[in-house]
């Protein structure tokens, strides 16, 4: 897709964007602005997935997080908070707990990522089409030992049932009226 040097440049650009928007999500005072920065950081993460040739995961990231979760978060903010209100403050003890949690997470990440020397020296990229839509779909529906057909069918059934449940709930309300 990209020439190698440009790809590196693009990667640094996107990483910087991800980090900046993630920081902005936490630091911005306005709740709605923070939700919007969250979307940007999700999309930037999706672009990193795309650069790793994991197209389906990238699209799922955009569809589920940017398209689903954050839209509902924004809906909730719009319905609950007052127009133009910017009250959003954190107390000091909470900050200490947050700093402790964040630092311990960083320590854990360092411990697990960099103890492994093969990760430092060489990172093989996945073979082409490893995470494409087709290979993921074949893997999901495969009945071999590395397939996920039962889990996939169960999840599909649950989602289908929830859609039908939504329809039936909508119908019931009308009958009561």
């Amino acid at each position: 897709m990209f020439p190698t040097e440009l790809k590196d440049l693009f990667f640094y650009f996107i990483s910087a964007l991800t980090i900046t928007t993630a920081l902005a999500t936490v630091l911005v005072k306005n709740v709605l602005q923070s939700a919007i920065f969250l979307i940007f950081s999700f999309v930037a993460t999706a672009i990193i997935y795309l650069m790793l040739h994991a197209e389906f995961i990238a699209i799922s990231q955009v569809m589920v997080y940017a398209g689903g979760v954050v839209i509902f978060v924004i809906f909730t903010i719009l319905l609950t908070s007052h127009l133009g209100e910017t009250a959003f403050s954190t107390k000091v003890p909470r900050n200490f707990i947050a700093a402790f949690l964040g630092l311990s997470f960083l320590g854990l990440a360092y411990r697990f990522l960099f103890q492994n020397h093969s990760l430092l020296s060489y990172t093989p990229s996945a073979p082409l089409d490893y995470a494409s839509l087709k290979s993921i779909a074949f893997r999901l529906l495969s009945i071999q030992s590395n397939g996920f057909v039962i889990a996939f069918e169960l999840i599909g059934l649950i989602l289908f049932a929830s859609l039908i449940a939504a329809v039936s709930i909508a119908r019931k309300q009308k009958e009561e009226k």
């Binding site: 709605l32 389906f56 940017a66 398209g67 689903g68 839209i71 924004i74 839509l133 087709k134």
Partner: peptide, 27 residues
């Protein structure tokens, strides 16, 4: 792309988003 249709569905969300925050930001 082999994921053309999911891509279109995913990208559609930005339209909804623009409308939602546009209405809010208008005060």
């Amino acid at each position: 792309l082999s994921i053309g249709i999911p891509f279109i569905i995913a990208v559609n969300a930005f339209g909804i988003l623009g409308m939602l925050i546009g209405g809010w930001a208008s005060n």
